[in-house]
């Protein structure tokens, strides 16, 4: 009974959030250059590394149009490519903070040393995510690098030592590391990491050439069970990423029910100035460009496709009994012809 009330309230909450659509999470794809060559790349970024980095002032002109939300802060999340390849990163951070916005960064850790860590904290960095994809052997295989594991190990220790930082580790779960999860968990606890997020890969980009990157259905169920079990351990806050609706595991693998906030609270400025939502979303959903449009006007007046998801009621989603709660799964699952989502997580656990 209680869960029915909770679910109903959450649906109303989602409607409310969608109607008011406050932009409070803004990705900035500040570079597409990268110093690694990961196997799964292409599933989460454009990977057009020939594109020049976006000049800071171009981004700031767009950011200046963004209003303060009624609750909390706006956070700018610097992503890439590898943001640490920009040599003006601290300046970027300081300028963002000058505008009363917060900022954070997603990094592969390769260039994250002590000097960089302190310099970024001094520039007001408040959130950080570091990728770790397995034990040393598996991580090195996935990241195509023999040196990255040590760098990540060091970066994690630095980040975990600073209590002010909202820091988490993300792990991309695949066939080669699914059995290592308990080992990774113990390692993270020993490193004093407080938050750990797990996600899976969708079959696009370079990842499609590696079938071992995709979990079988029973492995996916194993992943859900592992998360549910580990959530009883107070030493680490583990969760499944926002990537999809997981039916009977809803609210057991995350702090809340599934809600894809792309275009509702999450926006992005991509490397070429395109305005969209999460950077892993198909580029055909781009809503405008900061070099021609006012970011906030685009946010307010466009983005209909994100805020009314009835169009996803097609293909396998057309007659799905969970559509109200899932709405066609994470937006990043819609590519190409958009006849059906690339992945239905619920299908995997049924």
């Amino acid at each position: 009974m209680l869960s029915i009330i909770k679910k109903a309230a959450f649906r109303q909450f989602k409607k409310f959030e969608t109607k008011h659509h406050e932009l409070n999470y803004l990705f900035w794809e500040c570079t597409t250059r990268c110093n690694l060559n990961c196997l799964h790349c292409g599933s989460d970024c454009s990977k057009d590394s020939s594109h020049p980095d976006m000049p800071l002032e171009d981004f700031l002109s767009a950011l200046d149009t963004v209003k303060q939300p009624s609750v909390g802060n706006v956070i700018v999340v610097l992503t890439g490519g590898e943001p640490l390849l920009r040599n003006d990163l601290e300046m970027c951070g300081r300028e963002i903070r000058k505008r009363e916005k917060r900022w954070g960064m997603v990094t592969n850790g390769q260039l994250y040393d002590r000097d960089k860590h302190i310099a970024l904290l001094n520039a007001g960095m408040g959130a950080l995510t570091i990728s770790l994809d397995g034990n040393k052997t598996t991580h090195s295989w996935m990241r195509n690098s023999t040196t990255n594991f040590e760098k990540v190990d060091n970066a994690i220790a630095l980040a975990a030592s600073y209590s002010r930082l909202n820091f988490d580790v993300v792990t991309c779960v695949h066939q080669k590391n699914i059995d290592e999860l308990p080992q990774i968990r113990d390692y993270l606890i020993q490193k004093k990491v407080k938050a750990w997020r797990l996600f899976t890969i969708i079959p696009i980009g370079r990842s499609t050439q590696h079938p071992e990157l995709f979990l079988t259905d029973s492995q996916f169920v194993g992943l859900m069970d592992f998360i549910v079990h580990t959530r009883q351990n107070p030493e680490i806050d583990i969760m499944f990423s926002c990537e999809g609706y997981v039916g009977k595991y809803e609210a057991k693998v995350r702090d809340s029910y599934y809600f894809c906030r792309a275009g509702i609270n999450i926006g992005s400025i991509l490397i070429d100035g395109s305005i969209s939502a999460c950077p892993n979303i198909d580029r055909s959903f781009v809503q405008g460009n900061i070099y021609q449009d006012n970011l906030m006007e685009v946010w307010e007046n466009k983005f209909h496709v994100f805020r009314n998801r009835k169009w996803t009621k097609t293909g396998k989603c057309a007659h799905c009994s969970d559509f109200k709660d899932c709405q066609g799964n994470g937006f990043h699952n819609w590519h190409g012809e958009k006849k059906h989502p690339l992945v239905c997580h619920k299908e995997k656990i049924s």
Binding site: V77, T79, R102, N166, G330
Partner: peptide
């Protein structure tokens, strides 16, 4: 978001 940081 999946590929983003926690909020601050």
């Amino acid at each position: 978001a999946c590929y983003g940081t926690p909020q601050d």
